[in-house]
Amino acid sequence: MAAIMRPGEAPMQTARESVSFWPWVLQRISGLFLVVLMGIHIGINHFGNLGKASDTRDLIIFNDVAFRLQQGFWWAVDVALLTFVVYHGLNGIRNIALDLGVRGTGTKVTTGLLWLLGIATWGFGIAALIAFRKYA
């Protein structure tokens, strides 16, 4: 049993199921993680010193960040945050590209470019985090 088709009618174009299923699932999972991780990140990194800050420059101190990143937990939080945020953001851009009418080869090119951009961004982010550990 299959779709009813008229003589000479082309079948509906479909992609491999995993190509559409996993990005959708990962977008949700990364989104959920982001809500939690972003809450921690903003709360600690950006507002952690709010109570004793008299100037905006007191909010983020290099050594505080560096000290936190020595600890496995905070390292894991920041690496996870970086990974999820880059995936979530760039997959979101891919979704928008599809809805703007990117098709076929264009989809593959878009996906490929976004992966490159994502890996580069992730690599740079990790390098930045490592730098904190090194200079501390």
Binding site: M1, M12, T14, E17, S20, F21, P23, N95
Partner: peptide
Amino acid sequence: SARRERLKIVSDERGIWRCH
């Protein structure tokens, strides 16, 4: 009796996963 087959048809970038 064809639930699985139906779900396969709609599980696509041009199907349910595209609904925002």
